[in-house]
Computed example of a mutant assay.
Amino acid sequence: MKTKIITLLILISAFHFLTGQRLIFKDKNLQKAVTENFDLNKDGSINQFEADRIENLFLAGKGITSAEDLHYFKNAKMIVMDDNNIANMSLKNMDYLQLFSCTGCKIISFKAENLKKITSLYLDNNRIENISLKSIPLINQLTVSLNKIKAIDLSSLKSLKNLNLEHNQIQKLDISQNPNLQTLNIKENPLKKTDIRKGNQDVTIFGFHYY
């Protein structure tokens, strides 16, 4: 009996230690913004217990320069980070994330990987030159207008319905592997009709008349 009580006390202590640990943030502006809204115990910091309860993060215009700390918020469903200054953005292994927006953030390189539930991704008005999208099977809305993208691989985005590539530098585009695509905006790209490889889908293309 005594052994069981001791074991229980150890487990309780371990639980409080793990949930009570303060998270160490690389970006202090992100830390400040999160602490202001989600510091449940009012100790001036965020611990993992508090981070796990966050589902919606609104971090627009907070002076954030790094997104590395987002991995702490593994249960987040919506993250909005518009109007920050993040040159390199990498999102991965966020199992519950459904919507992510980072418009006007001066992003140069963007990578999304293993986002099982994301359906909407907004990356307009950045400086993106390199973009990698892998293992995001449910995405149906992708907007990356006003960037510097020259090439984009869409072959794994089987659920994609709406795609906005307006004002980029794309010269060739393959949408033959996107059977659910309904609308495509390719205005202000150096594309001709013959530069788009199209499948059997009935897609409306904005930017020129496709015959």
Rank of each mutant, 00 (worst) to 15 (best):
G63T: 00
L165Y: 00
I131A: 05
K32A: 02
L18M: 08
E166R: 05
N84G: 04
L70W: 02
L57Y: 06
V80E: 12
P137C: 13
F73I: 12
P137E: 08
K74I: 15
P179G: 06
S176H: 08
R53C: 10
N178C: 07
G207S: 12
S109L: 13
L99M: 14
K158T: 05
N178D: 09
E55Q: 14
L99Y: 04
K28I: 04
G199A: 07
R53K: 08
N88K: 11
N189A: 06
I186W: 01
L154M: 08
Q177H: 15
N147Q: 04
T3L: 14
V34H: 07
G61N: 03
N180Y: 11
R22W: 12
Q141K: 14
S13P: 03
N85C: 09
D52P: 10
G44S: 08
E55C: 13
L59N: 07
K42V: 07
N126F: 01
M1W: 11
T119K: 07
D83C: 06
M81G: 05
Y210R: 13
S13N: 07
N162H: 15
T65E: 03
H71D: 12
E113D: 13
A151H: 03
A112T: 09
L121T: 05
R127Q: 14
Q31V: 09
L97W: 03
F25N: 05
Q21H: 09
Y72P: 01
I128G: 01
K4S: 10
L121K: 06
T103Y: 11
N140W: 14
F25Y: 05
I10H: 09
S159Q: 11
M89A: 14
S90H: 12
F110P: 04
